[in-house]
């Protein structure tokens, strides 16, 4: 439990004790500003380490409130073609979990405030060693993790180590998560809740605005954690709407699409690849900031 109940800590049994949370602090600040968060996504090492590092470093100034970094995996079961391709480019460029942690460490040299969330699959973490990963991730400056194929039922391998290290475990809630499951999922969450807007994989379709507007209160009734919307949020208008009906918008495939289109036939970046992605982040951020 936080010593000061007024401190910007989300109320959850799983909020790791000890380290002050960049995630909670950022959402508290945004609440004070009266607006939602923009959470852009990048895939580590896509298309190479230097370009992805340039994008990562440029994101806060472009208007990113939190940043999500995808860790490439050979078998990304919940991802559509756009993020699959990004992961394959990343792997080809030598991405590993250790490499993704090193990116965060380098990012933290210039930014100690923007929360960073790693999103990936369980096997690379198990291979690295769950306990060692949690400790190294926290030390590198990672604030939260999303492990797509680790439902609450299977979290025992990692959750105690994450808690010990002060890492939030951000969970996905899907349209298929029924009333009976919702408390189980939310009780195993900390940091914020990631609402998957569609029954589907990343980068394929978008939810109708009225579906989102109806879905969020259903979750809100069961948690005090911030709720952000991802999957299918592509345009500034969609991001603004998502940030209005929830606490933030995650944009991934649309940004990766822009990056992918800037690459040459061999997958090499153009001199302005990072700038094009960051310009898009800027446009999204403006829309989110104007949303309320």
């Amino acid at each position: 439990m936080p010593a000061d109940p007024a401190a910007p800590q989300a109320r959850s049994a799983n909020r790791p004790a000890g380290r002050p949370s960049r995630i909670a602090a950022r959402f508290a600040a945004l609440r004070a500003e009266g607006r939602g968060a923009l959470i852009p996504f990048l895939e580590a090492y896509d298309p190479d380490l230097a370009t992805s590092m340039e994008i990562l470093r440029g994101m806060p100034a472009a208007g990113a409130d939190l940043i999500e970094i995808g860790v490439p995996f050979t078998d990304p079961m919940a991802d559509g073609p756009i993020i699959q391709a990004a992961g394959q480019r990343g792997l080809k460029a030598g991405a590993t979990l250790a490499g993704a942690l090193a990116m965060v460490r380098a990012f933290r040299e210039g930014d100690d405030a923007t929360p960073v969330i790693l999103m990936g699959y369980l096997n690379p973490i198990l291979s690295y060693g769950a306990e060692r990963f949690a400790a190294d991730a926290a030390a590198a400056g990672v604030d939260g993790i999303i492990v797509v194929d680790m439902p609450p039922e299977e979290a025992e391998v990692l959750a105690p180590h994450a808690k010990e290290a002060g890492l939030d475990i951000i969970r996905l809630v899907a349209p298929t998560t029924d009333a009976a499951r919702l408390p189980l999922v939310l009780n195993a969450s900390s940091g914020f809740v990631y609402y998957v807007a569609i029954t589907g994989i990343t980068g394929t379709k978008s939810a109708a605005p009225e579906e989102l507007a109806a879905a969020i209160p259903r979750i809100r009734a069961h948690t005090d954690l911030p709720i952000c919307i991802g999957f299918g949020v592509r345009t500034p208008e969609q991001a603004a709407h998502a940030a209005r009906v929830s606490d933030g918008a995650v944009v991934a495939s649309a940004l990766i699409d822009t990056l992918a289109k800037s690459l040459d036939a061999e997958g090499r970046p153009a001199p302005d690849s990072a700038r094009r992605v960051l310009d898009q982040v800027r446009a999204l951020a403006q829309a989110v900031r104007a949303a309320r």
């Binding site: 079961m77 919940a78 439902p151 039922e153 299977e154 996905l172 298929t176 998560t177 499951r181 999922v185």
Partner: peptide, 20 residues
């Protein structure tokens, strides 16, 4: 009951699939 044979098996799927 958790679908485990010793430490093997289980249900390591994304939340969208879990209810299914």
């Amino acid at each position: 009951a958790a679908g485990k044979f010793g430490g093997f098996g289980g249900r390591y799927v994304a939340e969208t699939l879990m209810p299914l």
